[in-house]
Design a protein around this nucleic acid. Structure first.
Length: 479
RNA sequence: CGGGGCGUGGCGCAGUUCGGUAGCGCACCUGCUUUGGGAGCAGGGGGUCGCCGGUUCAAAUCCGGCCGCCCCGACCA
């Protein structure tokens, strides 16, 4: 058992913090709600970023950078937007030694700023679609910060696009939701439910919001990415118009979408176990760690062989780390890298070299039981396949957990009891309105996570209203 | 903001009830022996006990005030 990490079944919140500390992902900052992302944690973010950035570019988007100071008046132009965001805005009121005429908002999101520029840059239908993205930091003065999941300042990307009509903007909204789902599933090995947010849960200023919802190890939901169809709401507020091919002025239809460093929290809570972090190979900063068993008589030979393997793996674009630190026992190193979630460990000592093999220990089957031998000659050839296998196993495991903990309930009473005894996702018939959602949250702490895009056939009675409906919703407690 | 817990070397904690030279484990440094699942021995360094004030011969400990952190809830990527 890992030292210094409480068992997740005993205290999940503490386990989460223990893992972050022991794996050296982040540290708390002097300012409440802020965190320092440490090298290992940031390396995970860099991999998330690299993967998504490629997908954004493959779907035609360009990166830009907008300023983080936004005139306060910008937020007052869109009614819902200001109402949704004003409680959590941080502002600069003094600068250069004097009070500013107009306070500057530290950006919480950039719809307003993008529209300000869109209205200048977009003149003709030939300028559309305009497909932009930025990687940036944002500030939201949240009431209850948690490392990675909800920090005062966080890193994210925000896509902002403008289109000639509703159809194209809606297509873009769902396309990017698909990009997120693909990333979650195939890179982060996190199965997600794609769905639409209810009126109550949607983004302030959007016509429709979509989400990918993932299930954490304690059965709670995590909104892991969102996309929004903004309609012409911001276009009207900022007068973002274009001339169509029949010489008519029209408002652009827009989308925006984002994922954040919250994803790292999701990875921790979907894959982590009692021994610490577990990283899917495609996300892991170190995919393979080589731990040489150094003994005086064979030290040189062991190191030379280890270095040779490391360099072969590098040639195959595997992220490999040779842990040749002196004065530390192999057992210490095994645990050190296990806590950090390295997917595959390669052990090599004089015995192995003599007999012509190495020992492999996959993180998703830790301990002696999971170890197996691979011939020295085959190591670099077999490892890519092994990493793919671990990637697949981790997705399968997470998918099984998601399915096992997705329940149903026929009535509100049944649900109220069930959600406490068996935390998880509840797929239920739903025809409620905002008041029903408030009651749901007050009485059960659960919320409507989404209306899944993939709906099952048939119909039933809404668990809140009793009305007949053919819509199912996912209910769960959420971070 | 409401409820609960807590501030003592880098981390985790004891000591506070009942005032009397600030301690333990881990980590760190040096040396030797070790190294196939968190090594052993020996030596060593590091703390204005959250802050301010009060009581006292004497305060980590008692009294008053303030600040901060964590967990649970409302908010949310």
């Amino acid at each position: 058992m890992a030292k210094n990490i409480v068992n997740p079944d005993k205290d999940y919140a503490r386990w989460y913090q223990d893992v972050i500390r022991e794996a050296e992902l982040a540290d708390s900052a002097p300012v409440r709600g802020c965190m320092i992302i440490r090298p290992y944690g940031f390396a995970i973010w860099e991999n998330i970023k690299a993967s998504l950035d490629r997908s954004f570019k493959d779907t035609g988007h360009s990166n830009v950078y907008f300023p983080m100071l936004i005139p306060q008046s910008f937020f007052e132009k869109e009614a819902e937007h200001v109402e949704g965001f004003s409680p959590e805005l941080a502002m600069v009121t003094y600068a250069g030694g004097k009070k500013l005429d107009e306070p500057l908002v530290l950006r919480p999101t950039s719809e307003t700023m993008f529209n300000h520029m869109f209205s200048k840059w977009i003149n003709s239908y030939r300028d559309l679609p305009m497909l932009l993205n930025q990687w940036a930091n944002v500030i939201r003065w949240e009431m209850r910060p948690r490392a990675f999941l909800r920090t005062t300042e966080f890193l994210w990307q925000e896509g902002h696009t403008a289109h000639a009509n509703e159809k194209e903007a809606r297509e873009e909204t769902l396309r990017m939701l698909g990009v997120y789902e693909d990333f979650a599933r195939n890179v982060a090995a996190i199965p997600v439910i794609r769905g639409r947010k209810t009126e109550r849960e949607k983004f302030a200023g959007a016509v429709a919001s979509y989400t990918i919802e993932a299930m954490m190890g304690n059965g709670w939901a995590l909104q892991s990415g969102t996309t929004h169809y903004l309609g012409t709401n911001f276009a009207k507020a900022f007068n973002t118009m274009y001339l169509d091919n029949s010489n008519e002025q029209k408002y652009v239809h827009q989308s925006s979408w984002g994922v954040s460093t919250r994803l790292i929290g999701g990875v921790i809570m979907v894959h982590g176990d009692e021994n610490g972090l577990r990283l899917p190979p495609r996300l892991a900063p170190v995919q393979v760690v080589i731990v040489p068993i150094l003994k005086d008589a064979s030290r040189e030979e062991t190191l030379i062989t280890s270095e040779k393997i490391a360099s072969e793996l590098k040639n195959r674009d595997i992220r490999v780390k040779l842990d040749d630190r002196e004065g530390m026992s192999p057992g210490f190193k095994f645990n050190y890298w296990e806590v950090r979630g390295v997917p595959l460990r390669l052990e090599i000592g004089p015995r192995d070299i003599e007999e012509g093999y190495v020992m492999l220990s996959p993180r998703n089957n830790p301990g002696r039981d999971g170890k197996f031998k691979v011939a020295l000659d085959n190591v670099s050839g077999e490892l890519p396949g092994l990493l793919d296998k671990i990637q697949e196993e981790m997705l399968n495991e997470a998918t099984t957990k998601l399915n096992e903990r997705t329940y149903t309930a026929e009535s509100f009473e049944e649900f109220t009891n069930a959600i406490n005894e068996k935390p998880g996702f509840y797929s239920v018939w739903w025809d409620g309105d905002a008041d029903d959602e408030i009651r749901l949250q007050q009485e059960t702490k659960a919320t409507v996570r989404c209306i899944p895009l993939d709906q099952t056939e048939g119909s039933g009675r809404c668990i809140m209203t009793g009305r007949k409906t053919d819509v199912k919703a996912i209910l769960a407690r959420a971070y």
